[in-house]
Design a protein around this nucleic acid. Structure first.
Length: 567
RNA sequence: GCGCCUGUAGCUCAACUGGAUAGAGCGCCAGAUUUCGGCUCUGGAGGUUCAGGGUUCGACUCCUUGCAGGCGCGCCA
């Protein structure tokens, strides 16, 4: 149960005689007021309804207040506040009831139907290890998937392997020359635009081990033998990197497989039938375009769907572009019939968003496709931009990051900010054991709660059933309860925005309320949670903390960050 | 040149999608403080939300014109 929805529905029922236009009904909300002095919940209906009823918001608020006051008995105080809010303060015994309903599904909506959701993320080229730039999108995608599962949906995490085309050709060529270097000592060519990273040597060794007896002669003769092994080797490295972050995809889709199955001709056919494909000449691009000449080629009319210009499907030599294969891939994805599609792209692919969503819109009219961009991460150590590794050119490897700070810290921090703001990632901070480190602060709260249970010989896993909640009466206790009650609201926020940074934020705030509660015992012996002999009071307080612990656990599980029992 | 993202306290970021006095953490200032679990606690000061214009009862949020930063921009992937 979500108390905000519960009271919204209750209030709407009470004021059912007031005519409400259906289009504005969802703008009416029950919220936590911004400030504590405004009470526990507030209702904005007078503000929303005033104009259509041609009444003053304050006057309407007073009328609605009277109606609710007459019909409901849950509140100690109901007040109208300028510009037209109605603020409610619960009777304490009502508030305490909200705590009782908390279980492992707390916050999960009960009415939502379960949808099949496809979420594509990472999809890094299988040409080498993941670097830090991939981490954020990877973790964001994984946490968002966990969240959507918690919300009640059926989620498939998908990875699109770009194992086709020129980049792969260059990659395999690089592996080939590393093999030649290993076998014959011939220096690796620096001038052919090949992959210079030393990890290619590891891949070369791995490939050699697997193909064993194959005779490595010229590149043209061995390319078809080397390619699958080289891709597999690179993909294994990527999967290991993902595993370090705690990420496992459900489905890997290969571009060359899409090509082999000739999905493209079916997709093009469909676009042709809609009149979205034509042969034409693209306008000259702005900026640097020295060697550009006008050419006739097959184009997709993406401008019809909001893109700036139409996009090429075929190159001048009649082979397909990368984009064309991506159209085919998405066509295949759409045919697999999910209710909802999410793509997570790195910020450097922002320019690709319009043409991709144009293609999806052309292939499928219902609007169930969202693209999320994950912004870049800047690494810092001791306040300075930080480089960790000279391997792989300038890239800092994902593995190095996880090795340095641990999976939990990386996961927590990577989703601590909204996905479309840039993020500063400070190595010192995330490994710090002080309250300045939010991960530590949240996990410390879990450990402290466990310790209180151990000291009192209670099992934290075993629900306390006989607590007398009316023993809870201090402000610090109620502040904690209020924060716990906000959780379903956080869940809604995440869902509406497809963002998850609200969760670590909330967990931090929740932990902060707990630490404040705990610290209050230093000043006032009555507030020591267990440091006294009143068994019944200890029972009540541990009951509250057990519920708190459950909420912390739900949140940390969505982040896939460990709940620490001891530190 | 064009497109997308961003611009909020000294710094890093929130702000429930149009609501109340724009909130946290760090930093700064002032006090308190040896153990329920040590890696502190309580309070305070900090703002013309980049600038101008518009929409309305009401704007950080929407529209518009600029400015600044980031990313991207041909048949690469």
């Amino acid at each position: 149960m979500n108390i905000f929805d519960y009271y919204k529905n209750l209030f709407l029922k009470i004021i059912k005689d007031i005519p409400i236009d259906k289009s504005i009904i969802k703008k009416i909300t029950v919220e936590t007021p911004k400030q504590k002095i405004f009470g526990d919940i507030s209702f904005n209906a007078p503000l929303i309804l005033a104009s259509s009823l041609k009444k003053q918001p304050m006057q309407l608020a007073n009328e609605i207040k009277e109606l609710i006051q007459a019909a409901n008995n849950d509140f100690e105080k109901i007040e109208v506040a300028k510009p037209g809010f109605i603020n409610f303060t619960f009777k304490k015994e009502i508030f305490l009831k909200f705590i009782k309903i908390i279980d492992k599904n707390y916050g999960k909506p009960t009415s939502t139907k379960s949808n099949k959701i496809n979420i594509e993320f990472v999809s890094a080229n299988p040409t080498g290890p993941l670097h830090v730039g991939h981490c954020r999108g990877a973790i964001f995608g994984d946490v968002l998937s966990n969240f959507l599962k918690f919300y009640g949906h059926n989620v498939v995490k998908e990875y699109y392997i770009n194992d086709y085309g020129n980049q792969i050709y260059l990659f395999v060529k690089s592996v080939y020359f590393r093999i030649i270097e290993l076998q014959k000592g011939k220096a690796f060519p620096e001038d052919q635009g090949l992959y210079p990273g030393e990890y290619i040597i590891d891949i070369a060794k791995d490939v050699l081990k697997n193909i064993k007896n194959e005779n490595i002669s010229s590149f043209d003769e061995t390319i078809s033998i080397l390619t699958p092994y080289a891709i597999k080797s690179a993909l294994d490295i990527i999967k290991k990197d993902l595993d370090l972050m705690g990420i496992v995809h459900d489905n890997f889709v290969s571009e060359s497989d899409i090509v082999n199955r000739d999905i493209l001709s079916e997709a093009i056919e469909k676009l042709k039938n809609k009149g979205d494909v034509y042969t034409g000449v693209l306008p000259k691009p702005k900026g640097d375009a020295e060697d550009w000449e006008p050419r006739e080629q097959l184009l997709f009319k993406s401008s019809k769907y909001g893109d700036d210009v139409d996009r090429a499907l075929q190159k001048s030599d009649n082979t397909w572009t990368y984009f064309a294969n991506d159209v085919a891939y998405h066509y295949d994805k759409l045919k697999r019939n999910f209710d909802y599609y999410i793509n997570i792209l790195g910020a450097d692919h922002a320019g690709y968003v319009k043409r991709l969503s144009s293609a999806v819109n052309a292939l499928n009219n219902n609007k169930t496709f969202s693209i999320k961009l994950s912004q870049i991460v800047k690494l810092y150590k001791s306040g300075k931009p930080f480089r960790m590794s000279k391997r792989a050119g300038d890239f800092i490897l994902a593995k190095d990051l996880i090795d340095a700070v641990g999976k939990d810290s990386a996961r927590f921090m990577m989703v601590y900010r909204s996905s479309n703001s840039q993020l500063d990632f400070d190595f010192d901070l995330v490994t710090d054991t002080s309250k300045d480190n939010p991960i530590f602060y949240v996990q410390y709260a879990c450990a402290r709660i466990n310790s209180l249970f151990d000291k009192s010989n209670f099992d934290i896993e075993k629900p306390i059933t006989d607590a007398k909640l009316e023993n809870l009466k201090y402000e610090t206790e109620f502040n904690l309860i209020k924060k716990i009650v906000e959780w379903p609201k956080i869940v809604n926020l995440c869902y509406q925005n497809l963002e998850v940074h609200y969760i670590p934020y909330y967990l931090y705030e929740l932990s902060s309320e707990f630490h404040t509660y705990w610290n209050a015992g230093k000043e006032n012996d009555d507030l020591k949670i267990i440091g006294h002999s009143d068994k019944e009071l200890i029972n009540s307080r541990l009951y509250l903390l057990q519920k708190l612990y459950l909420v912390l656990t739900i949140g940390l599980n969505i982040l896939d960050v460990k709940v620490l029992k001891k530190m």
